[in-house]
Amino acid sequence: MGSVPLAHYLALGSALFAVGFAALLVRRNALVVFMGVELMLNAANMTFLAFSRAHQTMSGQAAAFFVIAVAAAEAAVGLAIMIALVRNRNTLNVDEVDTLKY
């Protein structure tokens, strides 16, 4: 006891990924869907950092840094798109955004 095995960190990461996955697939609210994506990015970060520590290489931390930056950028544009969507459709329910089909 004392030190936590690598697998547990990774499992935590994959658990977060799975939850984000689920949020993305199950929830109808576009914002919550997007939050799921954010969670998945965090899962990736968790994995990076776990391995970074396991292998004692810091490039994993640099990677996490980039992931956070990307997440921020995505959030900016993504939220802007949702604003535009609500302006047009007055809804954030992904089920209702389906005029383009077949």
Partner: peptide
Amino acid sequence: TEAAFKYFILGAFST
């Protein structure tokens, strides 16, 4: 906007 929305959501997912 719908197109952008779909593209974005799925694009983020794939990222």
